[in-house]
Each structure stands twice: as structure tokens, then as C-alpha cells.
Design a protein around this nucleic acid. Structure first.
Lengths: 107, 107
DNA sequence: CTTCTCGGTTAGGATTCACTAACGGTTAGC
DNA sequence: GCTAACCGTTAGTGAATCCTAACCGAGAAG
């Protein structure tokens, strides 16, 4: 068991193949065969990557007959984006703090 | 050279220790000893992580006497954030496309 | 000059990860 | 009932990764 609950999203996006899957799913829902046909890996690899992404909450699965359609979860993507945005804003704030040492702050 | 030029940032953020380093650097520049003192890993590990982050362009290093101060690079963080934002917007666009197919629409 | 602290580098081990290959289960169509 | 297509799962291998421990170089203080 890998208790990387918060880090799941980041480690899921660490792999290039998974980012490619996410990029394709961002354009619209697709099945496993569709994704594997456009990627240089086998179906098993795509299925495992989708499992990782689903476990991270980045994609959701829906059964459509005999094939399963996966679609991207915008909320999870937005959560990671917000976390990155927080880092960015804090970094800017620290820069302002350093800059404020030279001159006074302006309204 | 690492052929994962764009993916460097993502794989750099995949590790929890590196994210902790990034989080601390977001609050202000720090030296290696400072970071290692607040983290449950040794100085060597912190130095290696900083090398990975520097190679990914996420942090920049500046010599201050005998100790080196690392600081976060907001531009690289913003680049990753924008990429995530692109995924988010595309996913929303595909949702709108699917929603347009249905006749029901609720506020 | 000597000593002390700080930082980077290397070697080594243990863990984790990504991929292929083979199998079983489920649904659509004859 | 039977065939065909599609999908998920389980070994198993090879590579990448993260960590500690030990060594060495560079400045500051005495």
C-alpha cells in the first residue's frame, strides 16, 4: 500500500505517457482501445496508467456497453493548479518582501 | 542530457520531499542547512533534491559567502500552472460540447 | 597555520516504477 | 449455444530513483 494520498496527483502526472493520456482525455472522453491506438504503448500499459489516474482522482470511469469510457476530472486538475498557484503567489510575496527592504511599499 | 525537458518539472514535483522543499522555498530563500534542519532527511538528500530542482529550472542558486542560498523560480512554477490550466480549459470545453448535445440545462 | 563549519560528490543498497506477455471474464452478434 | 471483440488483472523483468554513509574542498575564526 502506498499511502501517498496527497502526492497521488503529482506522481500520476510525473509520467510522460500519463500526461499524454490526460492531454487526450482533455479533448474528450475516450475508451481504452482508442487511447492505446494513438499511443506507442500496449493496451495493458494504458489500462494500468488509467488505474493510476483513476486512483489519483484525475479521471473517472463509466461503463458503456462492453467498453469503458474514461473522462478527465476538471476538479482534480483545478486542485493541482491551485496548489501550484499558491506556490507562485507565495514566491511573489517573498520577492515583494525582499524588494520592500530597499524601498517602501506602495499602495 | 535528459530528453524530458518539459517533463522535468513534473517529475521534479513528483517527490514529496521535493515538494516540501519547494513549499519552504516559496516562503523565502534558504540555504541547504536551513532546509535540512526542517526536514526529516539528511543534508545529502536535500542537496541532491536541490540539484534535481535546479536542473528542472524550478530553483536558482546564489552563492553567499560559504553557504549557498536557493530560491524558487516563479516563472517555472507559472509555466507548469499554465499547462495544467490548459488541460482544465480543454476539459471544460469538451464538457460544453457534450452538454450541448443534451436538451436539459440547469443553472 | 590550524581548526571548524558548511556544502557537494560518490558508492552502495533497498525500494518503486513502467512495460510486455499471458490469462480470464464480459458483452454483442450469428 | 458459440464465436469474436473488448477490457481488466496478474506475474515477471529491467531500469530508474531515493536514501544513508563516508570522503573531500572551500571559507571563516582562533
Amino acid at each position: 500500500m502506498n499511502p501517498n494520498r496527497e502526492g497521488d496527483g503529482w506522481s500520476a502526472l510525473a509520467d510522460g505517457t500519463r500526461r499524454a493520456i490526460v492531454s487526450r482525455l482533455a479533448d474528450g472522453p475516450q475508451a481504452v482501445g482508442q487511447l492505446a491506438a494513438g499511443l506507442p504503448v500496449s493496451r495493458s500499459a494504458v489500462s494500468q496508467h488509467l488505474k493510476v489516474l483513476k486512483d489519483a482522482g484525475l479521471v473517472s470511469e463509466r461503463a458503456a456497453g462492453t467498453r469503458r469510457v474514461y473522462r478527465l476530472n476538471p476538479t482534480a486538475v483545478a486542485a493541482l493548479r491551485d496548489q501550484l498557484d499558491t506556490f507562485w503567489q507565495r514566491a511573489l510575496a517573498s520577492y515583494v518582501e525582499v524588494a520592500g527592504q530597499a524601498t517602501e511599499e506602495s499602495p
